[in-house]
Amino acid sequence: MTLFIPKESPEAVTEAQEMKRGGWVIIGLFALTIITSACFENFLHLPPAAGMMLGLTYLSFFSYYLQKTTSSTHLFAPVKVDYFAPMKYMGNPKAAIQQDEEIDQSFDVFHKVANLEWDTLLFFYGVMVCVGGLSFIGYLELTSNYLYGADVDPTIANIAVGIASAFVDNGTIMLAVLTMQPDISQGQWLLVTLTAGVGGSLLAVGSAAGVGLMGQAKGVYTFTSHLKWTPVIALGYFGSIAAHFFINDRFF
């Protein structure tokens, strides 16, 4: 794929970037949120999601503090932001469109949550619910008995799982495999992790990164534009499987 990358180099950005007020504290709150989630699960036996929601509470309190301690002059000072800057080097004429928007420099956590890519989040929520439903009614157990039964080679099954992850989010496919709890060797577990990860990139909808990018770069990165890379990714997919068997043969 490197053969298709333009040879020219983008202009260097010499302007110094300053971290906004409260940036280091927010980074610390993020680390504290991860620690809180781990402690909730290990010590309080609560879902990690509860710890993540408590982290949102940390951020909400700090957001309130930032708003109350920001001067009115600084609060409404507009700044020009080019949202298309990361896409200018993708060789797409549409990415050259300039859109200057004024944004508020104050940090408002509710504004950030409101501007989330809800279509993407609902997509992942929907597929996770589908996996839970299929597990509840027993279809995942039937699939596990068929894929990882005595009649099917686990290698073939794991390669098929990787190809299937191109059509359904690879994280969801991996969740389904973990829910099945197949009795396979360590090498096969490594293989299914590899195939689900790489196979998800065969199509744009197969990975969280692809779905998220389609939501953010509407009209620039699309399902159709990704298809031209599918043959090259497929070559890498089967090449990675061969490399796995060559390097990790002792785990099978």
Rank of each mutant, 00 (worst) to 15 (best):
V129Y: 05
M87H: 08
N92W: 06
F110A: 09
S63Y: 03
H74Y: 14
G138C: 03
A150G: 08
A157E: 00
L59G: 07
S135A: 15
I103K: 05
P93T: 14
N145C: 08
G126H: 04
T73L: 13
T120D: 00
A96Y: 05
I156F: 15
G138N: 04
G149E: 03
Y65H: 04
L116R: 00
I163T: 01
L134W: 00
A95F: 02
Y65E: 01
G138I: 02
Q105T: 14
H111G: 08
L147D: 07
K112M: 03
Y58I: 04
S135C: 12
A96T: 10
F124G: 00
A150F: 15
M90F: 13
F123C: 06
Q99W: 10
G133F: 15
K112H: 04
A164K: 03
M87E: 04
S106Q: 09
T73A: 14
Y83R: 14
L75F: 14
G132R: 13
E102K: 10
I137V: 09
L134P: 00
P78V: 10
G149W: 01
G126P: 03
Y139T: 07
F84M: 15
V113N: 02
F84D: 11
V161S: 07
C130W: 13
E117W: 15
S72Y: 10
P78D: 08
E117D: 15
N145V: 06
M128Q: 06
Y139Q: 11
N145P: 06
V161W: 04
Y58M: 07
W118A: 07
I163W: 00
L147W: 10
N158P: 01
E101P: 04
C130T: 15
V81C: 02
L121H: 02
P154T: 09
Q98G: 05
K88D: 01
I159P: 07
I137A: 02
D151V: 14
L66W: 09
K94N: 10
Y146R: 06
V131I: 15
F123M: 05
K94F: 12
E141R: 05
Q98P: 03
D153Q: 02
K68I: 06
V109Y: 03
I137M: 03
E101N: 13
F84T: 14
K88C: 02
G162E: 06
T120R: 02
Y64Q: 06
N92G: 02
K68R: 12
F107W: 13
F124I: 06
T120V: 10
A96C: 03
D153C: 03
S71M: 09
F123A: 03
A114Q: 07
S63G: 01
L75A: 14
L66M: 11
N115I: 10
E102L: 08
V109R: 01
D100M: 09
T69S: 10
M128T: 10
K112C: 03
Y139R: 05
Y89G: 12
L142H: 13
A160R: 00
Y125R: 06
T69E: 04
Y148H: 00
V81G: 04
Y139M: 13
A150P: 08
S60K: 07
N158S: 10
L121D: 03
V81F: 11
D153G: 01
A114K: 13
L142R: 06
G138Y: 01
A77M: 12
Y139D: 04
P154W: 13
T155L: 01
Y65R: 05
F136K: 06
Y125P: 02
Y139V: 09
I137H: 04
